[in-house]
Design a binder for these strands. Structure first.
Lengths: 243, 243
DNA sequence: TCGCCAATCTGGTATATACCAGATTGTAAA
DNA sequence: TTTACAATCTGGTATATACCAGATTGGCGA
């Protein structure tokens, strides 16, 4: 049992000690923490209590878990501006991280109803669906689901999609969005997404939906992103559009 | 013990049953769930396991807890656009909810360093600091910390601040922001904020920082918001500002 | 009728223990 | 040297139990 003079619950005092080692830099980004059984011995607590402290730190974003491998120190958040279409990779590299995109699938599918409604096209229309996974410093950080109207970019799927999509859309198809609707909120990751990111189903994430439209209000691209909640900060700059 | 034929862990199957009652509407918004001991008896599991299911549902945003009172069904998320300065109350009421703002404190303080740096004023300058709590359907949903430069709005603290702040700034002081920088990310709520919202310290929240500037890039208002993570959706519309 | 306090209800924290399953590793066989 | 597999390490899930402290409630007394 730890020093018992204070009122603060044991698991929070353990949390504090661990948090200290992280913020002070004794434990570096991506470094593995001692095993749960080891921690419980060190602090003379049960594994259950140790876990409570770890789950707390996870919720705070200070550590993350990798299925049955252990707990690791969360690296610094990157900044991310979903309203800008500069390439993800160069955007991340500007911040001193490495980045990589992987295309998981690219198919022609019947448009999901909500995409049809949000995008102003008829239900049942065929659209391109692209699924990508993006890495920051070789850590998978988000899954991205993209919908495009083939009318605007015929033959798109023939291209390699591991590069900046908007660069391609601009240079090959002369597409340029005039307006974007963003929707952002915390949400748990469902099974397929969690699996693709190598985390536990039900762990919390950040959901971003982006609808890009052209000058006529017609939809160019619809984009759903499922982020690890601790991987980034949304940073948006909005110039005035008085009410 | 529940039906043991499936591989899905017990606590997730309990989760599913409870989630069902919520999404199907059998349990309505703000309705209290059965007590943990009651649930563990109903499902023939221990209280620890029942708790695991509840914590899971909490992470998903389907239920929330009120300290030692019980678990309740989370009401629907409201939409929230931090880039618009229309009154919070009318904005929420448009969506069919009731809203209310409470001023917790209004003082003249020495500017925090990060505010000085972000706002482009000298460190140590005195600024107004306003602390407000906002309710949706009588549920406290966010704590707001506002910084203003007294130079721009002398005597502001004499006014009632339970109304739309920007309405006041516009009509009384002719202030109008030209640009806003937003920063949004999930973060756990620290002790004072969690307490003010009546939730447990360490529960997850959504953090929003807004820096409003005038035409000259000078800061008009800086605003930090700490939201319950399940109370809202950020919805922003951005018109084009090509890269 | 109103206010206060005790009993009770509810979640919060903690111990001790057990077995399972995926990930990693070390060693022996090919 | 490389491959394959068994031992081991690590987190994941689950039981049983206990005591604490804040919140609610019900009843008694003024």
């Amino acid at each position: 049992m730890m020093n018992t003079m204070e009122k603060r619950p044991v698991y929070l005092r353990v949390r504090d000690e661990l948090a200290d080692k992280i913020v002070s830099g004794i434990w570096q980004a991506n470094e593995k923490l001692p095993a749960e059984r080891q921690l419980s011995e060190q602090f003379s607590i049960t594994r259950v209590t140790a876990r409570q402290a770890l789950v707390q730190l996870e919720a705070e974003g200070l550590i993350f878990r990798s299925n049955r491998r252990g707990w690791f120190v969360t690296p610094q958040r990157i900044n991310y501006d979903p309203s800008r279409d500069i390439g993800f990779v160069s955007y991340v590299e500007e911040q001193g991280f490495s980045a990589r995109t992987e295309t998981l699938s690219k198919t022609l599918v019947e448009v999901p109803d909500w995409v049809a409604d949000a995008g102003g096209i008829a239900r049942g229309t065929p659209v391109y669906e692209i699924l990508r996974r993006r890495y920051i410093n070789e850590r998978p950080c988000l899954i991205e689901k993209i919908y495009l109207n083939p009318k605007n970019c015929p033959g798109l799927l023939q291209h390699s999609l591991n590069q900046s999509l908007w660069h391609l859309l601009r240079t090959e198809y002369q597409l340029d969005p005039a307006e974007r609707d963003l929707e952002i909120y915390p949400q748990t990751l469902d099974a397929p997404v969690a699996e693709a990111l190598g985390v536990n189903t039900g762990s919390t994430g950040l959901y971003i939906r982006r609808v890009c439209r052209d000058q006529n209000g017609e939809f160019l691209e619809i984009d759903e992103e499922f982020w690890l909640h601790n991987a980034m900060k949304v940073v948006v700059q909005v110039s005035s559009k008085s009410l």
